[in-house]
């Protein structure tokens, strides 16, 4: 399925199940996402993690709502299953979508301006450098006997300075290689957006609406 439509689909459904309280639809969504993940051969360990973590948080939330609130059993079931809907749908999306392919699709299919698409990609490729920079800053401070925590302004200050440097350099490098903001571009790889994608998208949304509004518990 087309990545942009896939993203739109899971976001719309996640938004909708947050407002409508129908636990049967939640269960159906969980089963469908689980099947989709199994078909796509998601590793068992990842699947286990995707089950244990929400199990803990959903149980803790329900327990808390029971102790400190006056929610009905129906509402508690809705909340409990809702957590799993978020996690499983999100798992299906992130484990079957490559960030690069998604960015390309957003640029080509969803008409995201190319300066955003390539700006994001340029920065995302710096990820290992950013992680390394954080440890460098901390190590440098340690050498002077200074421990930097999550709440130390100095840590952020130094990393932001590095970020400003890198973004200047990257932007200059892109411009010097002929990148012009807003100029028409050609694409070496095109992300297909075919009728089947629209049918899957529309069909899933209609099915979700039917499930949510025909009065299921």
């Amino acid at each position: 399925m087309n990545p942009s439509l896939k993203l739109a689909l899971i976001t719309l459904i996640a938004l909708e199940v947050s407002f409508v309280q129908v636990w049967t639809v939640n269960v159906v969504l969980i089963v469908v996402s689980l099947l989709l993940m199994l078909i796509n051969r998601v590793p068992w360990r990842r699947l286990l993690l995707l089950t244990i973590v929400p199990l803990f948080f959903a149980s803790a939330l329900v327990w808390s709502l029971m102790l400190r609130g006056d929610a009905s059993t129906h509402f508690l079931i809705v909340i409990f299953t809702r957590m799993f809907v978020y996690v499983y749908m999100g798992g299906w999306f992130t484990l079957t979508t490559k960030p690069l392919w998604l960015t390309r699709s957003l640029e080509q299919n969803a008409k995201l301006p190319s300066k955003f698409a390539y700006g994001f990609l340029a920065a995302f490729n710096l990820m290992p450098k950013i992680q390394a920079e954080v440890s460098t800053v901390r190590a440098a401070a340690l050498m002077r006997g200074e421990v930097l925590h999550v709440w130390s302004p100095r840590l952020y200050f130094k990393v932001i300075l590095a970020a400003m440097n890198w973004s200047d350099q990257l932007a200059a490098a892109m411009t010097s290689h002929g990148f012009v903001e807003g100029a028409p571009r050609t694409h070496s790889l095109t992300v297909p957006l075919v009728a089947r994608d629209w049918w899957l998208f529309g069909g899933s949304l209609v099915l979700a609406q039917v499930g949510l509004f025909i009065g299921l518990p």
Partner: peptide, 22 residues
């Protein structure tokens, strides 16, 4: 928005993402 600002905001976001993860 220019390309430099977009890269900068993304780097800051990634840095914060690392903090969130930590």
């Amino acid at each position: 928005w220019h390309i430099r600002d977009i890269i900068l905001v993304t780097i800051i976001a990634i840095f914060m993402g690392v903090i969130f993860w930590a």
